[in-house]
Measured scan of single mutants.
Amino acid sequence: QTVQFNGLEYHFPNPEEAEKFAKKVAKELGGEVRVKDGRWQID
């Protein structure tokens, strides 16, 4: 599972970890999490 933001990609072994990370980062950055092409993106 991949999380993308600021032009970087973070890879996680399972979707739960990816989701948790994506939501944490979005909260800290005040961004929005969305899934695109099977990847988590933070904008």
Rank of each mutant, 00 (worst) to 15 (best):
K36H: 11
E32A: 11
V35S: 07
K20S: 10
V25D: 00
R34L: 09
N14E: 05
E32K: 12
V33F: 06
V25I: 14
R39P: 02
G38I: 01
E28T: 08
K36P: 03
K24S: 11
P13L: 11
Q4W: 14
N14Y: 04
L8W: 12
K23G: 05
P15S: 12
I42E: 04
N6V: 03
V35Y: 15
R34F: 12
R39W: 08
H11I: 10
D37A: 02
Q1G: 11
V33I: 12
Q4S: 13
V3P: 00
L29P: 01
A18G: 01
L8I: 14
E28H: 13
P13S: 13
Y10N: 01
F21S: 02
D37T: 02
Q1R: 13
A18E: 02
P15A: 14
H11A: 06
D37W: 00
D43R: 07
V35A: 07
E16R: 08
E19D: 05
V35C: 15
N6P: 00
K24T: 10
E32Y: 11
W40N: 05
D37Q: 01
Y10M: 07
F12K: 00
V3Q: 00
F5D: 00
E17V: 05
Y10A: 04
G7W: 03
K24M: 12
N6E: 08
F21L: 03
Q41E: 14
Q4N: 10
V25K: 08
P13M: 11
D37N: 11
K36Y: 01
E19N: 03
Q1V: 12
R34H: 11
A22S: 02
R39Q: 11
P13V: 10
K23P: 02
D43N: 10
K24L: 11
L29D: 04
R34W: 08
K27C: 15
G30I: 03
E17P: 00
V33K: 02
R34S: 13
F12R: 00
K23Q: 11
K36S: 10
P13R: 07
K36W: 00
L29S: 11
K27D: 09
V33T: 07
V35F: 15
L8T: 10
G31L: 15
L29N: 08
V3E: 00
G31Q: 08
V35M: 14
E9C: 15
R34M: 10
G7P: 00
K27V: 08
V33G: 03
G30M: 06
K20E: 13
G30Y: 06
D43Y: 14
F5S: 02
P15N: 09
N14Q: 04
L8H: 13
Q41K: 04
F12T: 00
E17Q: 08
E28W: 13
G30S: 06
P13A: 12
F21I: 03
K27T: 09
T2R: 07
E19L: 09
A22M: 06
H11T: 09
Q41V: 15
E9H: 07
E28V: 11
N14I: 04
V3C: 02
E17N: 03
E9M: 09
D43S: 12
G30T: 04
K36D: 07
H11C: 15
Q1H: 14
E19P: 02
Q41P: 04
R39V: 14
E28P: 02
F12A: 00
E28D: 10
T2E: 03
K36I: 14
T2V: 14
R34I: 13
N14T: 14
Q4F: 14
A26M: 06
L29K: 05
H11V: 10
G38K: 03
N14D: 09
K24N: 10
F12Y: 01
K27F: 10
A18V: 00
D43V: 15
G38W: 00
P15C: 15
